[in-house]
Design a binder for these strands. Sequence first.
DNA 1: CGTAGTCTTGAATGACCTCAAACGCTGTGG
DNA 2: CCACAGCGTTTGAGGTCATTCAAGACTACG
Lengths: 247, 247
Amino acid sequence: MPLTPDPSVIAKMAMFQGLEADDLRDVMGNARTRRVAQGTRIFSQGDPAETCYALIDGRVKIVQTGAEGEQMIVHFIGPGEMFGTLAVFTGGGYPADAEAVTDCVEISWSAATMTELMHRHPVVAINTLNILGRRLMQVQRRLREISNERVERRIARALLRLVEHAGRPVDGGTAIDFPLSRQDVAEITGTTLHTVSRTLSAWEERGIVELGRQKVTIRDPDTLTAIAEDLPGQAPATASVRGGSGG
Amino acid sequence: MPLTPDPSVIAKMAMFQGLEADDLRDVMGNARTRRVAQGTRIFSQGDPAETCYALIDGRVKIVQTGAEGEQMIVHFIGPGEMFGTLAVFTGGGYPADAEAVTDCVEISWSAATMTELMHRHPVVAINTLNILGRRLMQVQRRLREISNERVERRIARALLRLVEHAGRPVDGGTAIDFPLSRQDVAEITGTTLHTVSRTLSAWEERGIVELGRQKVTIRDPDTLTAIAEDLPGQAPATASVRGGSGG
DNA sequence: CGTAGTCTTGAATGACCTCAAACGCTGTGG
DNA sequence: CCACAGCGTTTGAGGTCATTCAAGACTACG
């Protein structure tokens, strides 16, 4: 993966749809491309937001930390998606950390450049509006789910969403394209790693998933969907989730 | 309140900051102003998003409904704020219902008009980006809170936020400017009206709030903040509602 | 082979929900 | 004016899902 990516990569990004070839060259000229090793912190919550990013390759997780250290995974970023853009327009610091969960290639622009670009090409602003709007709708849906639904169902949903977003077909199922610990799943679904572990173990026994270290493979997406949607006929054996000794 | 509002009202809106007087007249010309009675449904979840709105006067609540009827109050809209804008740019229908919780005056534009306006005046798109960005940050913070925090603290936070956003000073405290039922608070905080009722009753006994039918008055915001932030020194003493910080 | 990090599993507690009933405002009509 | 219905609210009792505390097992890596 070269450090000067060809413009076609940029051209495909949702953010730059509708730009002419000339403008794309302009965009490229003002951008900075960089390799980022797995585990690198790209920016930190509270840092002044001076740069906005897009991902060429790899995966980045966006993590928000509360006053007492509780963490929540807000979003996983994949190739072609922007991140860190939000804070550039709201002023103030980044609202979360960004961390590379695999080796990545990122491209970035200064806040000033991006603002200027949007003034020159309103379509970029409108594209961004579109992306941010979708993300807002997603977060709102997730908010409702977390408020009103049981943990098991939230975990099912989270896995299905991850598969949708970062699924890689493997022998006998679909795996998730990057290291994903139980703790990660807990921070997505708003629960503890213990509950996640118990739930996944129960599912493994039923042949729905296959587990590994920082790895989950979905073997039976239909049953998982049934759990997520609470469909009849695939009633989960809830008792088995609770360590075997119900009371 | 006249049905042809003077342009200064529009000029003050965050969405139209930076527009010239001429442009503002243009905006006004394409807008439609309307009175809305308390309780009116302005748009419904799933309706095709053909109009975007701003509020001149009154309060509107944005409510999302899940597949099985569970509801969640996403946002309260006050004077000068826009709503229903989101869906216009993401395509698809509105992601939630909008309902007037008081008598309102709204102003609206067709989606096409608004898009055109943004192309002519990028600053409007960038302003909208700013507003939407802030809202996204708010929702993400709320998501983390709901995931990681106990109910009592979430209720405290919700009340403080409502006071901030719609507080009206009254004799011996601050009231909230519109009818707010226990059920409403439950739908904001992701709990049940029973738990809300119990919690508020306990607080009333401690003199923190004063309760009425669809009404909450904050008498002691400091203690409420202490509960919200889990500060020392204001430890709640009631048996029925959990206090302190864990174990 | 030891160390550190991830994951599993058990047992006990408890926060919150669910179910159920009754209370008290508010507005309405006799 | 009072009776009555409707709605929001309060309160109790019981159940359970999920957290919390506590070990221990497994995996990767030097």
